[in-house]
């Protein structure tokens, strides 16, 4: 159970941490940094509730050890509010009722912001349609589960931002 010294950059802020080497990025954010906006739904990469941006790309933070993030920039839902893209997505989720209980929402928002960037960068998807069709958006967001079933509202929110 060795502990590690770690410098972690989260939402533009540097943190000096001494952590159990087994601490996941997700537990580091929630239990050690008080950034509880990132949610734990399954702790095994199956639900997407813990989605954060690691150097701008979406990852399931439950599948990443904090120790792996020493040289990376982590952006969480709390940090997203300081970017225009993040704020726009958060507002669109509320306007289009793309949420109910709110537990999957931070992961959905992070995922949606990163997904649009992936699409712009021509990262392929399994659908592979021309243009950002509804089917494309649904497929590209299929890794974020919502048990309340807010998918129609989420799609509308993403559409509104992508417009």
């Amino acid at each position: 159970m060795s502990s590690i010294q770690l410098r972690l950059s989260v939402n533009g802020r540097e943190h000096e941490l001494e952590l159990d080497s087994r601490v996941s990025l997700l537990d580091c954010l929630r239990e050690h940094l008080g950034l509880t906006g990132t949610k734990k739904g399954c702790d095994q990469g199956a639900c997407g509730a813990c989605t954060v941006l690691l150097d701008g790309e979406r990852v399931n933070s439950c599948l990443v050890l904090a120790a792996q993030c020493a040289d990376a920039e982590v952006t969480t839902i709390e940090g997203l509010a300081s970017s225009e893209a993040g704020r726009a997505m958060q507002k669109a989720f509320v306007r289009n009722d793309g949420l109910q209980c709110g537990y999957c929402t931070p992961g959905q928002v992070c995922s949606a912001v990163a997904m649009l960037a992936e699409y712009e960068a021509e990262v392929p998807s399994a659908v592979g349609e021309a243009g950002l069709t509804d089917a494309e958006i649904r497929e590209r967001l299929a890794g974020n589960l919502c048990r309340c079933g807010a998918y129609n509202g989420i799609l509308a929110a993403v559409r509104e931002v992508a417009r």
């Binding site: 709390e78 509320v94 709110g102 931070p106």
Partner: peptide, 9 residues
């Protein structure tokens, strides 16, 4: 409570 939920607050 939409805003608080969408911002992780």
């Amino acid at each position: 409570d939409g805003r608080a939920k969408a911002t992780g607050a």
